[in-house]
Design a protein around this nucleic acid. Sequence first.
DNA 1: GCCGTTTTCGGCCCGACTGTTTTCAGTCG
Length: 590
Amino acid sequence: MDNSGIARVFSDIATLLQLKGEPVFKTRAYQRAADIASEYPGELSAIADDLDELKAIPGIGDAIAKKIQELSGTDRLEYYEDLKGEFPAGLLSLMEVPGIGPKTALRASEQLDIHTIEGLEAAIEAGEFEKLPRVGHKNAQSILRHIRSQRRQGDRIMLGLALPAAETIAARLAETCPDASNITVAGSCRRMRESVGDIDLLCTSDDPPAVAKAFAALDGVVDVLGQGDTRASVVLQSGLQVDLRVTEARHFGALLLYFTGSKQHGINLRARARSMGLTLNEYGLTSDLTGELETFDAEEGVYERLGLPFIPPELREDHGEIEAAENESLPNLLIDSDVKGDLHVHSDWSDGRVPIEEMVAAARELGRDYVAITDHSSGRGVANGLSVERLRAHNAEIEHVEAEVGGIRVFKGSEVDIRADGTLDYTDEVLSELDIVIASVHSAMGQERSVMTERVVAAMRNPHVTAIGHLTTRLVFDGARSREPVDLDLDAVFRAAADTGTLLEINASPKRLDLRDAHVMQARKAGVLFLINTDAHRPSGLSFMQYGVGTARRGWCEARDVINTLDAKAFEKFLALPKERRAGKTAVRT
DNA sequence: GCCGTTTTCGGCCCGACTGTTTTCAGTCG
């Protein structure tokens, strides 16, 4: 069973134990185990043979480690099956509807014989559901709205849609409500997670209730899910849910910290506060001794009071960031402006939308020092790939455009297909005429692990291949579709990348983000160096870079881990090195 | 169920909103 399956089982166990009335700390332990499983880089099943290695993961103890072993071996867990047997069927699916918790789900199931979302919907429409204790008409109608909006939107929305939407609604609030200051996007958007469940917006005001009220009345709001003195929760036309919290300026630091999350990072910080005789909440730190509340207008102050340096939002995932902060060993994360070039860009020569010249001009406009035009090769996988003749004409056109546009170095490149057998679409002789070769898988994605691994590693051994593009080919759920990653032995691939001096791309396109954050972390530890590329097919796509940088930051990358933070001159020097000398961190900045 | 330079036992994070109630349970983040 894969990590997401294991996470699902533990999450269900947590819910069922809660229903049974088990101590909250037990249910919390399982929920934490679920979070750990879903975030774990690499497959847990791969280390399941070694109980000690499992137990070395913080939050995994003896009992849960053994359950991971059982799940890895048999795809089944006796304990889980028994637990499920104690409850009516369909109970867990009911609880996926916002507004339905354990109590209500159990009553609906036992008293009304409801076991599916559709059954629930019918019972609400028939007026039966609202007769349950502590439900009532308004609750029932609110739940019905949630069912319908969830059906519209799916579970999560990709960051590339959420962040622009968040910025738009923030701007609208600023316009309508001059009284609102410090309007800030928080939550998983601020942590740059690849997809988010909803948008958290924070601001400060001398009159919070007025701002909450104005927010609920904003243009584009189609439904108000709740509204109080310090917060409001609305649904936009797109189906996206936005939660606003308002506070006085003196509480802003604690509020931002609190609602940036992650949940587990917050829990760890509050536990740390407790051990110092303090209570941390969204208003500040309260002394247990004097009962006095200390407030902070910025996050830095809260961290400082807890004896820690500022921890960037992308690191707040309970991946050892608090320990690193204590030891003053936090990474010096790369920032957007560190990125100097974009080495994976398409034009209308293959499947891009505009001529090379327009892409290059747009890249220069964004302040890039260099760019590579990497249209597709002639392989089967992709439409309108370049034959050898067209590739040579493409090379000539790139030289022409470089001279014509000026002020930006333009590299001759190709995104060349890695064929099913591991060979490439162009011969070595043709590849040697290029500055940049991004080798990618676009076909035969169903190959079994050993074949796919050898296929990618074979491409890495080619001396002309600069980097592997979007390694796993997975697609983030974009509201319509997603795609599972190909089956790869990532340990072997990362080792081979480091050994051969092949760079791995962090594809910044929000629907790809491939490598994903956990893989970046794993690859970086294996000594891999990266490129962050947009894979832009039109000028607007060139600004996806921020999502790639966010992903790299979530993988604890510094500028030195990412080769396209070099300026054009240093980057060319890097390219001039034979591949084997591009490996390892020492080769880079010399 | 997990965890430990204060502990192998006894701790383990905090508050707001809603609707249904007559003082608060349920849910959420």
